Lab assay of single mutants.
Amino acid sequence: MSIQHFRVALIPFFAAFCLPVFAHPETLVKVKDAEDQLGARVGYIELDLNSGKILESFRPEERFPMMSTFKVLLCGAVLSRVDAGQEQLGRRIHYSQNDLVEYSPVTEKHLTDGMTVRELCSAAITMSDNTAANLLLTTIGGPKELTAFLHNMGDHVTRLDRWEPELNEAIPNDERDTTMPAAMATTLRKLLTGELLTLASRQQLIDWMEADKVAGPLLRSALPAGWFIADKSGAGERGSRGIIAALGPDGKPSRIVVIYTTGSQATMDERNRQIAEIGASLIKHW
Rank of each mutant, 00 (worst) to 15 (best):
S201E: 01
D99Q: 13
S122F: 11
F58R: 05
A185R: 01
K53E: 09
E46D: 02
R273V: 13
R63C: 07
G76E: 13
V157R: 08
W163N: 15
D99T: 10
S57I: 01
I278V: 10
R238P: 00
L167F: 05
Q203T: 02
E46W: 06
I278Y: 04
F228H: 15
D174V: 06
Y44V: 07
K109W: 05
P60Y: 07
F70M: 07
D231T: 15
E61K: 00
M153C: 04
H151F: 03
G239D: 08
K109I: 06
T198E: 10
L38A: 01
K109R: 07
S104C: 05
Q203C: 08
A124T: 05
G194Y: 08
Q97M: 04
T69V: 12
L197T: 08
S264L: 04
A235I: 15
K109E: 05
R202W: 02
G114F: 11
D155F: 11
T147K: 01
N152M: 12
A280Y: 11
A170S: 04
F228N: 14
E26I: 13
H285F: 00
M184C: 06
D99P: 12
N168K: 12
H94T: 04
L47S: 02
T193S: 10
R271T: 13
F228W: 14
Q274N: 14
D155S: 09
P217V: 09
Q274V: 08
S201M: 04
I125S: 07
P65T: 05
R238M: 07
P60V: 02
L219H: 09
T198Q: 04
L167D: 00
I229L: 15
V214Y: 14
C121N: 00
G141V: 03
F149D: 03
H110Q: 02
G154T: 06
N50E: 12
E164A: 12
A40C: 01
W163Q: 14
D207P: 00
K144E: 08
P181I: 01
S281E: 12
G242D: 10
R255C: 06
E108C: 05
A133D: 01
T158M: 13
P217L: 05
R241V: 13
M67E: 11
V106M: 08
E164G: 00
L146G: 05
A133T: 00
T179W: 02
I171T: 00
I93R: 00
R255F: 10
L282H: 09
E102K: 00
T186I: 11
R118L: 11
A230M: 09
A222K: 15
K284Y: 10
D48I: 13
K232S: 12
E62L: 09
P249C: 08
W286N: 07
L218Q: 15
N168L: 06
D129S: 02
N272M: 04
E277Y: 05
G141H: 00
P65V: 01
W163G: 08
P181G: 02
R159M: 15
S128R: 08
M153P: 02
L137K: 01
L223Y: 09
N134L: 03
V117L: 11
P165N: 00
E195L: 00
A225M: 13
V258N: 09
A132E: 04
M180N: 11
G39I: 14
I243W: 13
V42R: 08
P143F: 06
E169P: 04
M209F: 10
K32R: 09
E87Y: 10
I93N: 08
A215P: 15
T27F: 13
Y103L: 11
L223S: 04
Y103G: 14
E56W: 06
R91V: 02
M180Y: 07
I275N: 05
I259Q: 13
E175K: 04
E46F: 12
L205M: 09
W163P: 13
P105H: 02
V106D: 10
G248T: 04
